[in-house]
Design a protein around this nucleic acid. Structure first.
Length: 845
RNA sequence: GCGGGCGUGAUGGAAUGGUAGACAUAUCAGACUUAAAAUCUGAAGGGGUGUAGCCCCGUGUGGGUUCGAGUCCCACCGCCCGUACCA
């Protein structure tokens, strides 16, 4: 008897697919198109089981759609710019470009043996000048359309290394390399005007029916639409007004102070003359720039001495404080504090001994606020105290609306809809990114590079041995004639955020080598992405930026209007998690190690590593398994089968060696069944043909539903069950042959090589990959009888087997006659009987 | 801090509000074998008991809605993701 030898089978069928060219996507009118895309990988150097799982899922969908008569586009590329390449260059020498392209070659080589149905002719890396040159062209179009602008923004500044740090490089407020206390520094930077589209981006979420509800909710909260009011507070020193934004103007009676951001013009103006304020503002600038750090920091403030008039009670004066918790980017950078009805304001007021006064009570409970702010739901009715707009007992929401009306009527303020979403800062003070194609000219100012001069190519002759952006100190690259006047000028040395690269790659895949960003016919044919698959960690930023880009590309004529929501369906798979292995160098700085270099918590030289359960780590304490080792031992089909069967796609993946072994054994079992059926007497009669075929149609139905709903693990469980049935079957050759060929088809999206081999072995027509998906016969799915559990008071007490189409009343009669029921009733009558046809009977006694 | 999610046997997990633990791993028993491996068959949530049966408990904790809750609601605990310069 022959044995299952995946290495031989897999190489053979991959060659067959290649020769048939079936994964090369071309526009054609006779089939519906289907574009399936997995979030493209960062070329870190080695693929891991998480990648295998991600791309196998996409491959299952792509292959399934191919066999259901679709013209499938399934491309692959590389998100190739970013910090790790620069870090590698600093740590081990060499050039980011070499490191990146070497990694891409390695990873491509590791990916190909998986037998993915990828159209490799469309492959590109975002660091290819052919790609980022088109990105520069897009940038110039966005600039012309008014979608890009410059403004000052703060960055983390390392005063020792004299460089800008990413948030990730700031650890407990200190630079990761230098250990120096990080400061904030203001730079002029480029921004995309995403905030102009905030309302639209929020409203369009409603139409994304095939996105997970949690992602839509996260985006909605992130965009953060709020209805409130801008209220100018008049300064008592006659020096104009301070504009505050509030979503709770109804609590105005309880206002006891104004708090402005340390970056607010009022604060900046006073900084020069007041050393105490300057010291406080300076302290605020020591904090790193992340929202989490700001929110978790102790709430502090300082009185500026400035006073404003209460807009409703002009006799009341409110002090103006600088608060470290007020964000300049949100609202107007100034708020009024109402301690009685906001916990943060209350804590602040108690700390600095500011007045606390209720604006309302709960009806019938006139307790003054103590240590806990009174913040009932906006839908709850509250009793207002002496409200200026004349309202008494209404809900907070009604009070807010009435107050805004009152303020507008009396010209005290203006109702505003604001968003939490800020503009997208795209400037990065780094080398390994897409150069921003503008030139700074002393005479003409900021001048866009001419399109015919694109791409602005990154120079290769740089070194990363000293911190900072080497483009800043490049001897010649920076010097360039002004595109406008021709005089000597200097290039912008900032590069683009890598999120820009990943915000339109899906559109580029439709015409990956065109000399324009997109090609109309291709974009119109292939867009949208029908199924997008990726990690939940991208739920907000990447997906929101891509949605913005699709709109901006539509405005600038690079995408059709139909593609402004570029992803029709989204599936978020579980995280790719890792342990981090760390040691320290002589200066106490962290050094990281690959899992394959760590054995029992030690390096080869015996050094113990610290295992950090930080950001993205492995749930299990086991090391990360190299997919190549698995493929070498068991074959790609085993790896694919296991990563799909192990856990539900939306959860984190965990590898177990025994699971892989079991997957291999199962595939070998299927192969052996195929072998046995091939050797059967073709003419011999058998028993149980009908049972086998019924089981087969049930399995077709279950697996089809499973694949369509991303229930891959459940689909595989059904395939296990059907394999066991087939294994024990004594049916005729014809029935068993039909069963094994159907089994091969159902397994084909997951284990395509094995499926092809079985298909060929049984004399199937052509390739199983292109064979039409089997269709379940409805008539074979129905069964004549059904077994219903009988519950008494919700607890299972017996069961009843009845004809499937028996009347409800008849079922009830039979149930009441059941021994367990008569015993429980003890001669009495039931309070209630619930019969759910085909499901359950519940008797309440 | 804030926003979102998750929590079920020894383990990964299954379960349109309707028999909790499918399927798989590990375990145990049996068949085959001189033996082992491989393969095949079967058992198995915990506890009790009169042991082919029956009863009690059981899906992080505590409440609630319902004829019926792993599933829906509220509160809490733990973990994970995001938090705008990691990708």
């Amino acid at each position: 008897m022959a044995t299952y030898t995946p290495s031989e089978i897999e190489a053979r069928w991959q060659a067959a697919w290649e020769e048939a060219g079936i994964f090369t996507a071309t526009r054609s009118g006779d089939k519906p198109k289907y574009y399936v895309l997995e979030m493209f990988p960062y070329p870190s150097g080695r693929i891991h089981m998480g990648h295998v799982r991600n791309y196998t899922m996409g491959d299952v969908i792509a292959r399934y759609k191919m066999s259901t008569g679709h013209n499938v586009l399934h491309p692959m590329g590389w998100d190739a710019f970013g910090m790790p390449a620069e870090n590698a260059a600093m740590a081990i020498g060499g050039h980011p470009k070499t490191w990146t392209y070497d990694n891409i070659a390695d990873m491509r080589g590791q990916m190909k043996p998986l037998g993915l149905s990828i159209d490799w002719s469309r492959e590109f890396a975002t660091c290819d000048p052919e790609y980022y040159g088109q990105q520069q062209s897009l940038f110039l179009d966005f600039l012309e359309a008014g979608l890009v602008y410059r403004k000052n923004a703060q960055v983390n500044w390392d005063p020792v290394d004299m460089t800008v740090l990413a948030n990730e490089q700031v650890i407990d407020g200190k630079g990761w390399r230098s250990g120096a206390e990080v400061e904030r520094r203001e730079l002029t930077q480029w921004f995309f005007k995403i905030s102009d589209m905030a309302g639209e981006l929020k409203d369009a979420l409603d139409g994304l029916d095939n996105w997970p509800a949690k992602v839509r909710l996260m985006q909605e909260n992130w965009i953060g639409e709020s209805r409130g009011i801008d209220i100018p507070f008049v300064r008592t020193d006659g020096d104009g007004t301070i504009l505050c934004y509030s979503t709770r103007p109804d609590t105005m009676r309880g206002a006891s102070f104004i708090a402005v951001s340390p970056d607010h013009p009022v604060a900046k103006a006073l900084e020069a003359e007041n050393p105490d304020l300057a010291a406080f503002i300076d302290e605020c600038r020591k904090m790193d720039t992340t929202e989490a750090a700001m929110e978790k920091a102790e709430k502090k403030g300082i009185d500026t001495g400035v006073r404003v008039k209460h807009p409703v009670y002009p006799d009341v004066e409110l002090p103006v404080w600088i608060g470290n918790f007020v964000l300049m980017d949100y609202g107007t950078g100034a708020v009024f504090g109402c301690p009685a009805h906001d916990q943060r304001d209350l804590d602040f007021a108690r700390k600095y001994d500011l007045p606390v006064q209720n604006a309302f009570y709960l009806p019938g409970d006139e307790t003054e606020v103590g240590t806990e702010a009174l913040v009932p739901a906006k839908t709850e009715k509250v009793h207002f105290i002496d409200h200026f707009a004349g309202i008494t007992e209404v809900t907070s929401q009604e009070a807010i609306d009435a107050t805004i009306d009152y303020f507008e009527a009396h010209d005290l303020g203006k109702g505003q809809t604001k968003y939490r979403l800020r503009d997208w800062g795209l400037s990065r003070q780094r080398y390994w990114g897409c150069p921003i194609p503008v030139v700074h000219c002393n005479d003409c100012g900021v001048v866009p590079e001419k399109k015919e001069n694109l791409p602005v190519v990154l120079p290769d002759d740089v070194t990363l041995d000293i911190p900072g952006n080497p483009l800043d100190r490049h001897p010649t690259w920076r010097d360039t004639p002004c595109p406008n006047c021709g005089k000597a000028a200097k290039r912008e040395t900032d590069t683009m955020d890598t999120f820009v690269d990943s915000s339109w790659y899906f559109a580029r895949f439709t015409a990956p080598h065109a000399d324009t960003p997109t090609v109309k016919e291709d974009a119109e044919y292939w867009m949208n992405v029908d199924q997008y698959i990726g990690g939940i960690e991208h739920a907000i930023l990447h997906l929101l930026y891509s949605r913005f880009f699709a709109r901006a590309m539509q405005i600038t004529g690079h995408l059709p209007k139909s593609a402004i929501e570029p992803f029709d369906a989204l599936f978020t798979q579980g995280m790719v998690t890792h342990e981090i292995y760390q040691t320290s160098d002589e200066k106490g700085r962290p050094v990281y190690h690959l899992p394959e270099d760590v054995t029992d918590g030690k390096l080869a030289d015996g050094t113990e590593v610290e295992i950090i359960p930080s950001a993205k780590m492995s749930k299990s304490k086991k090391n990360v398994v190299d997919p190549l080792g698995i493929i070498a031992s068991y074959g790609a089909d085993t790896a694919r089968w296991f990563v799909l069967s192990d856990s539900p796609p939306e959860r984190d993946v965990e590898w177990t060696a025994s699971g892989a072994e079991a997957a291999y054994k199962h595939l070998a079992r299927v192969w052996n069944i195929c072998d046995r059926i091939g050797a059967m007497d073709k003419a011999a009669s058998g028993q149980g043909d009908d049972d086998l075929l019924r089981a087969m149609h049930k399995t077709i139905n279950d697996v089809t539903l499973g694949v369509e709903s991303f229930g891959f693990n459940a689909a595989i469980a059904k395939l296990y069950g059907f394999t066991a049935t087939l294994q024990k079957s004594k049916a005729s050759h014809a029935a068993q042959r039909e069963a094994i060929m159907t089994l091969a088809q159902l397994m084909a999206p997951m284990t395509p090589h094995l499926a092809e081999d079985i298909w060929a072995h049984q004399g199937g027509d052509g390739l199983v990959t292109t064979a039409p998906w089997p269709i379940a016969d409805e008539a074979m799915l129905k069964s004549d009888t059904v077994t219903l559990p009988i519950q008494i008071n919700g607890k299972r007490r017996g069961e009843l087997t009845v004809d499937a189409d028996l009347e409800k009343s008849e079922v009830e009669k039979l149930a009441l006659a059941h021994e367990a029921v008569t015993k429980a009733l003890d001669g009495g009558t039931p309070k209630k009987v619930i019969v759910v046809p085909g499901r359950i009977v519940n008797v309440v006694v």
